[in-house]
Design a protein around this nucleic acid. Sequence first.
DNA 1: ACAGCCATGTAACTTGTTACATGATTTT
DNA 2: AAAATCATGTAACAAGTTACATGGCTGT
Lengths: 172, 172
Amino acid sequence: MREAILALLAKEPAHGYDLHARLMRALGPAREAMNPGQVYVTLARLERAGLVQPQDVKQSGRPDKRVYTLTPAGSERVSQWLSDLSWSKVAPVEFHLKLIAAAQTGLADPVSLVDAQRLELLRRLRELQDLARGEDADSEGVLLLEGAALRLQADIRWLETCERWLAERMSR
Amino acid sequence: MREAILALLAKEPAHGYDLHARLMRALGPAREAMNPGQVYVTLARLERAGLVQPQDVKQSGRPDKRVYTLTPAGSERVSQWLSDLSWSKVAPVEFHLKLIAAAQTGLADPVSLVDAQRLELLRRLRELQDLARGEDADSEGVLLLEGAALRLQADIRWLETCERWLAERMSR
DNA sequence: ACAGCCATGTAACTTGTTACATGATTTT
DNA sequence: AAAATCATGTAACAAGTTACATGGCTGT
């Protein structure tokens, strides 16, 4: 969120309402319910950190708005962010823990667990593909959707690995 | 973290130090630096939430320990967690935002961005494969490593999609 | 008159994260 | 005598999340 807002402000100064709308667009159909309040929370925190500066702008015919601009420190932060090669953790840790817990406690059947999860991921994949069909073929949204779809496919293949792993483990 | 600890306690009661050690093992080589302090923070919060119950155990020859057991509410929570099919967000949102920011602001060259990132992900993939070679072939760790590797490969393929997308966009 | 968009926020809570503090016992 | 292992925590801050509150203007 922090970075997303700084990135949008790097293009041009903007106020909260506008940022919220643009974020929804930038995240395309992948946007999970975004609470508008959070934009303002984040802006206030960025201001406290000295990365953005607000300026009240009077408007006639509509409510006044508060336009935020990047400070030099803010621009610096954006540049750093762009050159940062870190990549969010990619291991499917949570399901892995579930699988182990199920196998060790008997609270659930691990095979059914994998099975149910695979059906769910296949459902999501279809959902993504439907969304993609509804998008402008060359909007930014499609690119992100493609990234999500590739990951989902990888996860589905991994679930098949999990199944093989369980089968082998049971046969011993 | 919350769920991970509950899951471990579902197998058997344990104290913080032990949970920390087991977590490191369960996460295998994918464990990022885990601060032991966090286990205790989380346990205290779980206790406040009524999901676990501590009991002090005296030991001779070593420090006393505080053994935590799941309460009925805690067991219930674990069962819910196991049957929950949610899957953490899979879209590579952050890089997508970077790409857009770079393309729109000129603060960085988007093509170099993609290129540098791909090299980095390839490096990580090799790293994972090295780790896998060092693991017991049928330990749980290998399974998780495989999941991480599959996702990384998906991301690398996505970066190639990004490159094609940029190329097309520039030719217009 | 009322729905819907424009516009902004706050209070309260949950999590994650880190740095630091403490001390006993066992092995070298 | 020192280092490693066993064992537990706190204080403080950063960040995400949500529910709620406010109000003006525009079009029907």
